[in-house]
Design a protein around this nucleic acid. Structure first.
Length: 492
RNA sequence: CGGGAUGUAGCGUAGCCCGGUUAUCGCGCCUGGUUUGGGACCAGGAGGUCGCAAGUUCGAAUCUUGCCAUCCCGACCA
């Protein structure tokens, strides 16, 4: 079969790629490091985007759109931010092509059409946005400014992976300006909560909320908050970040406001983002060797109905019954499809919908029709049951909720199983190598130790969990005193 | 970007070492028929710049060089 998947045990990376490609989420493109998001994958993204967008708006944000290009002089204004991204920027240097005089039918960059100032293709939009905010903010009455944009960004990565790290990706980036430090920090934390709630409740992926160490901090931020998720191979994935930017960008772009006391002050900033990388997290957190497993709340398709018929006579009878079921499902807002394509037989359809991760499948044949029942199958456990037609829609609705909860619980249990405490270096290394997952251990708080641990084990500090328990201990590597444990893991 | 591997029809592949008729097989696709409760069967058919570009040769899927892409390991990666 061309649709055969690599198993997780055989080759986890290949399994992941197979799911993305064969599950119809995305395809490789003609551009290095860039992918085509196919309709099924995009439908998933749209569902995720719609939920997030709703929450952003509920928390007082509005959407806007800023340019793809950032003049180099603006880009370099905030030094740390510029430095952090410099190595992965695509840069536009010319604005015209012309026909090659030496090679008919080919085009060359017109050397006459060199831009006076290079344009950086945004790897993130702080620079262009803060340059704009300068003109929008004069008074405390203009604050807070709470803006989000849905956009694409480009980061010229050396090594790319479908959804997890592509040269171009889709995301949202919130950029807010506040009158006080406290309010900006509150915003940073609020948006982290929005992310955590969305990822847990809709994507059914449990996350750890925490803050990054200075080493792992966003370039130009005072503090980076993050949510960290765990994949089925025990590796961590940063699922979203929310940054408290202090006054760094306000100072770099000279954004000041007049406060109530008629004094000029620099504004306080935040930025926060999640990307199509979340789709990678979704895949690796839930799916199995048969294919994708979509959380019902954001699944492009929640229910698929497969007719089983012998001869042309029975099909119209089934069609009629299914039309009723479809109407009932749609009345409850359930995304359902009647897969009556005659080219494929039922067994093929079952396998295909399992590959695509459709949460619930309903099969209906004459046998069922006579007994007024259908076969109801759930993707997460592969369990099948025969249920009466009466009250089917309600039952399906409950089942969708149960599946959502079940895959969350499953991921949570996996994470619990793969979260350990290490109290010695030997134990630490052993856990990372053999148990994988998060390892909670004491760290002396220095960047040197953090780097040394990374060099020796490839594990990084994923975060210092919020509201972390304070306890005296000694650093796993240096033996120096420590006041708290931090979460280590190998990560994507 | 460094090391390794791979690239032959939509997918998976044989052939490559040791150059030589019309590039192998399976799945998928098209037509017709029979089918349909876990990836159907029969018959007929279409589909190939052998990743791309140069080179060596009378002759290149096969040898050489460069490039591109994917995977693995590293570096890098907010």
């Amino acid at each position: 079969m061309s649709k055969e998947l690599t198993t997780r045990a055989a080759d986890y990376s290949q399994w992941y790629n197979d799911l993305v490609i064969k599950g119809g989420l995305a395809d490789y493109s003609a551009v290095r490091g860039c992918m085509v998001i196919k309709p099924y994958g995009y439908a998933l993204w749209e569902n995720m985007r719609d939920q997030l967008d709703k929450r952003f708006k509920e928390t007082g944000h509005v959407n806007a759109y800023f340019p793809l290009f950032v003049p180099k002089s603006l880009f370099e204004a905030e030094e740390k931010n510029a430095e952090g991204f410099a190595k992965e920027c695509a840069v536009v240097t010319h604005y015209r092509l012309k026909t090659d005089p030496d090679n008919k039918g080919k085009l060359i960059v017109d050397p006459e059409a060199k831009l006076e100032e290079e344009l950086v293709v945004r790897p993130t939009s702080e620079a262009i946005i803060w340059n704009t905010y300068k003109g929008w903010i004069q008074s405390y009455r203009d604050l807070p400014l709470l803006i989000n944009q849905w956009a694409n960004v480009v980061r010229w990565e050396m090594r790319t992976r479908l959804f997890l790290r592509t040269a171009e990706f889709l995301w949202q980036e919130g950029h807010t300006a506040h009158a006080t430090k406290a309010e900006a920090i509150e915003e940073t934390e609020k948006m982290l909560d929005v992310y955590a709630e969305f990822v847990e409740e809709y994507m059914a992926v449990p996350v750890i909320k925490g803050i990054k160490t200075p080493n792992e901090r966003f370039a130009g931020a005072e503090e980076t908050y993050c949510i960290e998720a765990m994949m089925q191979d025990g590796k961590a994935l940063q699922a979203g970040t929310s940054h408290f930017l202090g006054q760094n960008f306000a100072k770099a772009f000279d954004v000041q406001f007049m406060n109530k006391e008629n004094k000029l002050e620099y504004v306080w900033a935040t930025s926060w983002g999640v990307s199509t990388r979340l789709i990678g997290a979704l895949i690796m957190a839930h799916s199995d060797d048969q294919g994708l497993i979509m959380p019902p709340k954001i699944a492009p398709l929640q229910v698929v109905i497969v007719p089983i018929y012998k001869g042309a006579d029975s099909k119209p009878v089934i069609d009629e019954k299914v039309a009723t079921i479809m109407a009932e499902l749609k009345a409850l807002g359930i995304r359902a499809k009647y897969d009556d394509n005659d080219n494929a037989r039922p067994g093929w359809k079952f396998a295909e919908h399992e590959l695509k991760g459709v949460p619930v499948r309903i099969a209906m044949g004459m046998r069922d029709l006579e007994n007024n029942v259908v076969e109801l199958a759930r993707r997460d456990t592969k369990e099948k049951q025969t249920v009466p037609l009466d009250g089917l829609a309600g039952l399906v609705q409950n089942l969708l909720e149960e599946i959502q909860q079940n895959i969350y619980n499953r991921a949570l249990a996996f994470r619990a199983d793969h979260t350990s405490e290490a109290n010695s270096w030997e134990e630490f290394v052993d856990l990372l190598d053999n148990k994988t997952g998060f390892v909670s251990a004491h760290w002396d708080g220095t960047a040197e130790t953090e780097d040394a641990i990374k060099d020796k084990t490839k594990a990084t500090i994923r975060c210092i969990p919020l509201n972390n328990k304070q306890e005296a201990g000694v650093c796993i590597l240096s033996g120096k005193p420590s006041t708290q444990r931090v979460l280590f893991a190998r990560a994507y």
